[in-house]
């Protein structure tokens, strides 16, 4: 891709790329999308609306995110499945000091090993994304989950 992208194209391409990394189970590359000082929180919409801090996944720093992925890989026994993210366009509310505040809706369809697909989650990424000279990094991602009655388990990050 040689064409120069504007900020909106850069952001949308980055969010789409990070979602494909989850769907392709390239979670190390997915974690590389996060800044070293970043926060990743998956929070039920009911808690967000009531200003309650309790979450489904709450990684205040990147070490905690790294630990969670390591547990997923090496300790947790998860429901075998494939994920498929469907991503909306991104709504940019502001860009301050080259950090963009962005909201992006998503759906995740989960498919089991017998080819049975179900809507697993509807939600919204509320992101702060640093637009670096040659790269983009997530500084903060709140994944606000509409489908907060989680079917079976939430093992793979959203």
């Amino acid at each position: 891709m040689t064409a120069v992208m504007n900020d909106k194209q850069r952001i949308e391409n980055f969010i789409l790329r990070s979602a494909f990394l989850i769907d392709n189970n390239q979670l190390d590359d997915w974690m590389a999308c996060f800044d070293e000082n970043s926060r990743y929180v998956v929070i039920p919409r009911e808690n967000r609306d009531r200003n309650l801090p309790g979450a489904l996944m709450h990684c205040d720093n990147k070490a905690r995110l790294t630990d969670r992925i390591a547990c997923l890989r090496e300790a947790n026994k998860i429901n075998p499945h494939f994920d498929r993210h469907i991503i909306s366009g991104s709504l940019i509310s502001e860009i301050v000091d080259r950090v963009a505040s962005v909201k992006t809706s998503f759906l995740v369809v989960q498919t089991n090993l017998y080819g049975d697909s179900k809507l697993f989650c509807a939600g919204c990424y509320e992101d702060k994304i640093a637009l670096l000279d040659d790269d983009e990094k997530i500084v903060e991602r709140y994944v606000v989950v509409d489908t907060f009655s989680v079917p079976t388990m939430l093992a793979t990050p959203l």
């Binding site: 929070i43 039920p44 009911e46 808690n47 009531r50 309650l52 801090p53 309790g54 979450a55 489904l56 907060f148 009655s149 989680v150 079917p151 079976t152 388990m153």
Partner: peptide, 10 residues
């Protein structure tokens, strides 16, 4: 109360 989590089980 710090929040809620819900898990649907078949």
């Amino acid at each position: 109360v710090l929040g809620y989590q819900r898990q649907r089980v078949n």
